[in-house]
């Protein structure tokens, strides 16, 4: 066999097995710990916090809870109903999709500890500061009126507290199995697009249009990333390929943050509970925050 092909195959198996071993172990640990963190407990806990402490806690909790954009509405309404301030609810909504264990593992295996930790820290910082800012702007009147009028019944819920340690571990194991199965396709898709970029997109193209010397590159990255709907599993391999082609790390992380934090489907879902003005402010401020992060990271010269 051609030694280059052999090397490529070895590389592929080494890389994918590394990613999957990391993914399986970290998802298992996180989902085990998560069995102690039910959404209604979080709601109760956050409803007692009203200052920046609430923003900080909401952002951190957001990073370790699983989030699917289809839960955005019930969660949003439920939080506000429980008396959690709007700004703290936004902190949670920003952190949950953008910063999670899958993004962390994938960044770790493609870019190393430094970038993975940096992404995590900056994501939490953005969620805290944007939520805090939005909370100060008195935007409650721009939440759709029906949200404030819904009466929530206090329903009986199957209690999970009595679960034994063993049962929690078994649940976490099955959950890990299913999650890895469902993001598998995203990773393969991401790797495929990444391979396409690797093979067919000329380096000059990226250097010409996306280098640090082009002040608009980060802006375009965010503008392209916002409407795109993809999760961390699919976007990291693509971003990795772009960085190898010379895309500055700040621009790359801004692209990834805008893909995961905001998406067209999520904006359309949020429109059901936010009046256009608030929706516009929300998307605008989050985009600006990501933009700033991108420029800052490019200045730090990390790659």
């Amino acid at each position: 066999m051609n030694p280059i092909i052999k090397q490529a195959i070895n590389f592929f198996f080494y890389e994918t097995s590394k990613i999957f071993i990391l993914l399986i172990s970290i998802i298992f640990i996180v989902s085990f710990l998560r069995s102690y963190l039910q959404a209604d407990k979080i709601k109760e806990f956050l409803s007692k916090k009203h200052t920046i402490v609430g923003n900080i806690l909401a952002s951190i909790i957001g990073t370790i809870t699983p989030f699917c954009s289809c839960s955005a509405i019930p969660l949003f309404i439920g939080f506000l109903q429980a008396g959690i301030p709007l700004g703290i609810t936004f902190s949670y909504l920003i952190a949950a999709p953008m910063v999670n264990e899958i993004a962390f593992v994938l960044l770790l295996s493609s870019f190393g500890w430094k970038i993975a930790l940096l992404y995590w820290a900056v994501g939490i910082f953005l969620a805290i500061s944007i939520g805090f800012l939005l909370g100060k702007l008195n935007l409650e009147k721009y939440v759709e009126d029906f949200v404030w009028q819904i009466k929530t019944k206090n329903t009986q819920t199957e209690t999970l507290e009595q679960l034994s340690l063993k049962q929690r571990a078994i649940n976490a194991f099955f959950y890990t199995k299913e999650l890895v199965k469902s993001i598998f396709i995203w990773i393969i898709l991401g790797v495929a697009i990444g391979a396409f970029i690797h093979g067919f997109v000329p380096q000059e193209l990226i250097l010409k249009y996306c280098s640090k010397d082009n002040p608009f590159a980060v802006f375009w990255a965010v503008l392209i990333g916002v409407p795109i709907y993809a999760n961390a599993a699919g976007s990291v391999p693509i971003i990795n390929a772009l960085v190898q082609k010379g895309l500055p790390i700040g621009t790359a992380l801004a692209l990834m943050m805008s893909i995961t934090a905001l998406s067209l489907p999520e904006i359309m879902i949020l429109r059901r509970v936010l009046k256009p003005k608030l929706l516009f402010i929300y998307v605008g401020i989050v985009s600006c925050g990501i933009l700033l992060v991108g420029y800052l990271f490019n200045l730090l010269k990390l790659n």
Binding site: C68, S71, P74, L75, G78, I150, T152, N154, T155
Partner: peptide, 13 residues
């Protein structure tokens, strides 16, 4: 129906 979901106090779907 989102209203029914919220009325039951469900946060995550």
């Amino acid at each position: 129906d989102i209203m029914q979901i919220v009325e039951l106090g469900i946060l995550t779907t």
